[in-house]
Write a protein that binds this DNA or RNA. Structure first.
Length: 394
DNA sequence: CGTCCACGTCTAC
DNA sequence: TAGACCTGGACGG
């Protein structure tokens, strides 16, 4: 689950689980891994990690510094990357890079990445174009945004700007939805409009109480976080909830994570494809820059036996939140012949449990003769689906 | 079985 | 602004 919380937690996992381990030998790479061979070998070395946004840097350090210079590696996780520590004799599928311990029997720290969109590079350099980390470099992140509001990156809708790693290093698709939802900001409001308002608000606060004590300021911000503060606080919630969302016996982790989500994938919320073909989840108005020719999709609210709420699973703030209720039904009534409820939909059977997603319904547009257009063999090629769910333009 | 969808970048018309 | 890059799970017939 690689947005910045998962990357940071991967780093924490490595430091905790591997901090006391000694590794030995060379670094093994799978035949298909998306990264270079790692020219490092040592009969006794340690591994440490540090995260920045969606990147994770590993440092391999020989116990005897004279034996070999340290080797740095910077990973990106793509859509499916993760690190695991497992017996070297039972490597998981798609373990594209492996670091073996000196134990007997040996274990291996593995970079596992089924889809292979992730990669690694040699050296200690973070990717040049990525901005400060929303989690670990909050002040720099904030200033980088507010000082550059004239950048054309902010001409775009806020939901798209939030995925720009030059300004929002660490934010990904579920975080943008969760962040905007907390403030009920329409996802297709213009980014600059939203951020200028943040800037003005800061000025006002300053004028009003120029001598506020720091502690007061902190309280104020915690009570009334602005968008940029939430870009830090929301990922932090996930990181803090580590124990419950990502514990070793990951049996219920996914269920807990889904339970933490307030908007992304949540039944009753609306969704649209943004201009890059990514699904944005939101509630309420899409906003002025919404793509034309699409009807917001809505997963119907089923009568659901709520996700089995694990009462201790959530951070205090969220803990009291009523289990996910459907907001009032709204526009775009679902198709009349929709299969209603029926199954009790236990959120996730033990073991599996996955995004229970309603198949996207081809919207029935309130336009004459949509069928012709909609049914014209939309090419079934893999990526021909960006436009699915569209409505003939007017 | 087949289709759709996924927590992200990249580069090439 | 489309594809391309990939595997695998959910769901439908």
């Amino acid at each position: 689950m690689p947005e910045c919380p998962e990357v940071h937690l991967a780093g924490r996992f490595i430091n905790r689980a591997c901090g006391g381990l000694v590794f030995a030998g060379g670094v093994e790479r799978s035949a298909v891994g998306r990264g270079p061979e790692v020219p490092f070998r040592s009969e006794a070395y340690r591994i440490s990690a540090i995260a920045r946004g969606k990147e994770l840097r590993l440092t391999l350090s020989a116990l005897d510094p004279a034996a070999a210079p340290p080797q740095d590696l910077v990973f990106r996780f793509g859509m499916s990357g993760s690190f695991r520590l497992c017996p070297a004799a039972e490597l998981p599928r798609h373990a594209h890079l492996r670091f073996r311990t000196r134990e007997s029997p040996p274990r291996a720290l593995c970079f596992v990445d089924p889809r292979r969109f992730g990669s690694w590079r040699l050296g200690d350099a973070w990717q040049q174009e990525r901005g400060p980390c929303v989690v670990s470099e909050y002040q720099a992140f904030r200033e980088n945004v507010l000082k550059n509001l004239d950048d054309k990156a902010f001409d775009k809708p806020i939901c798209e700007a939030l995925l720009n790693q030059k300004y929002f290093n660490g934010i990904g698709n579920y975080l943008r939805a969760e962040i905007l939802y907390r403030l009920k900001i329409p996802p297709f409001e213009k980014a600059r409009t939203v951020l200028e308002a943040v800037k003005d608000q800061v000025q006002k606060r300053r004028k009003k109480d120029p001598s506020l004590r720091l502690s007061k300021k902190v309280k104020l911000m915690q009570k009334n976080p602005d968008l940029l503060e939430l870009c830090h606080a929301v990922p932090m919630e996930v990181i803090m909830a580590e124990k419950h969302l990502f514990d070793p016996e990951h049996a219920d982790n996914y269920a807990n994570f889904k339970n933490w989500l307030q908007c992304y994938l949540v039944p009753g919320m609306s969704s649209l494809r943004d201009h890059n073909g990514r699904t944005i989840w939101f509630q309420g108005e899409p906003g002025p820059m919404a793509p034309t020719g699409q009807v917001p999709q809505k997963t119907p609210c089923k009568k659901r036996a709520q996700l089995k709420a694990d009462p201790k699973a959530l951070t205090p703030k969220v803990a009291s939140r009523a289990s996910k209720r459907c907001p009032r039904a709204a526009a775009t009534p679902p198709k009349s012949d929709e299969k209603e409820e029926g199954e009790e939909e236990e959120a996730s059977g033990p073991g599996k449990g996955h995004a229970r997603r309603r198949r996207r319904v081809t919207p029935a547009p309130a336009l004459p003769e949509p069928e012709v257009l909609l049914n014209t063999k939309r090419s079934r090629q893999r990526s021909a689906r960006k436009g699915r769910g569209t409505v003939p333009a007017l």
